[in-house]
């Protein structure tokens, strides 16, 4: 599904990712952990195609195609979905209008044709319910005045509606209370399927109790310094990143 080789990325002339290798098979869930500032969000933005993140070396293949040749919306249509660490507030655009525009834009790009209003509404209701996203939230401007937890649930709703092949969840657990964590994790688990891969960025082992990963990687100083199975997360919880930070420095 995703094949990253020797990826180097600079932001504003500063090298942030310094040779990442990562291979994710179809249906796999990989967790990425690592200290603050190690480049986790940077990696997620590079995958999404955000401006200002320059790939200076290496390659990213997604479903066998060069991802870096595609712009942001082409990547979205191809199946990349990034749930942001800090979802952006968009005043004046109601969540419902936004969801409809996004769903139809993606459907058209995938050659599926737009959904009519009735079918769209049915789809939203169906996906929103398990995430506790209320009609009242859908009527409000996108993310404006949403609590931290509401923003994260809205991100997962978008993910469910856009039917991605690779989900990148950047600290989707931060700011969630225990109940919301359960709701969000259940929502994510419902989306696990043999055709869909996930990258779960988190600081906490707790999330990985709910969303059990196939692999865990430690990103430090712009490199993956250790990889292992889900036990690695437990180890990190005990020992912290001290050993790895030293390696990277």
């Amino acid at each position: 599904m995703l094949e990253i080789k020797n990826l180097h990325v600079t932001v504003d002339g500063k090298e942030i990712l310094k040779g990442i290798d990562l291979s994710i098979g179809a249906g796999e869930v990989h967790a990425i952990m690592g200290p603050n500032g190690s480049g986790k969000s940077t990696l997620s933005y590079v995958l999404a195609g955000r401006d200002g993140y320059e790939v200076t070396q290496g390659s990213i293949l997604f479903k066998g195609e060069d991802l870096t040749a595609k712009n942001v919306e082409e990547r979205a249509a191809a199946g990349i979905f990034l749930a942001l660490q800090y979802p952006i507030e968009v005043p004046g655009v109601t969540t419902m209008t936004f969801l409809k525009t996004a769903v139809n834009a993606i459907r058209v790009a995938r050659g599926e044709g737009e959904l009519d209003a009735v079918r769209f509404l049915k789809l939203v209701r169906e996906k929103a319910k398990p995430l506790n996203v209320t009609d009242e939230m859908l009527k409000r401007a996108l993310n404006v005045g949403f609590s931290g937890g509401e923003k994260k649930r809205a991100e997962i709703l978008q993910m469910a509606l856009l039917d991605p092949a690779l989900c990148v969840l950047d600290e989707t657990d931060s700011g969630l209370d225990i109940d919301a964590l359960k709701v969000v994790s259940d929502g994510v688990n419902m989306l696990r399927s043999p055709g869909r891969s996930m990258i779960v960025i988190t600081h906490y082992q707790r999330l990985l109790d709910h969303i059990v990963p196939d692999r865990v990687h430690v990103l430090s100083g712009g490199r993956i310094v250790k990889s292992g199975d889900k036990e690695l997360a437990l180890e990190l919880e005990k020992s912290g990143y001290a050993d790895y930070a030293a390696d990277a420095a």
């Binding site: 999404a48 195609g49 401006d51 979205a76 952006i88 507030e89 968009v90 996004a102 856009l162």
Partner: peptide, 11 residues
């Protein structure tokens, strides 16, 4: 915001 909307498929 432009990036956010594009990342959801809008050109």
């Amino acid at each position: 915001a432009v990036f956010y909307l594009r990342s959801r498929g809008l050109d």
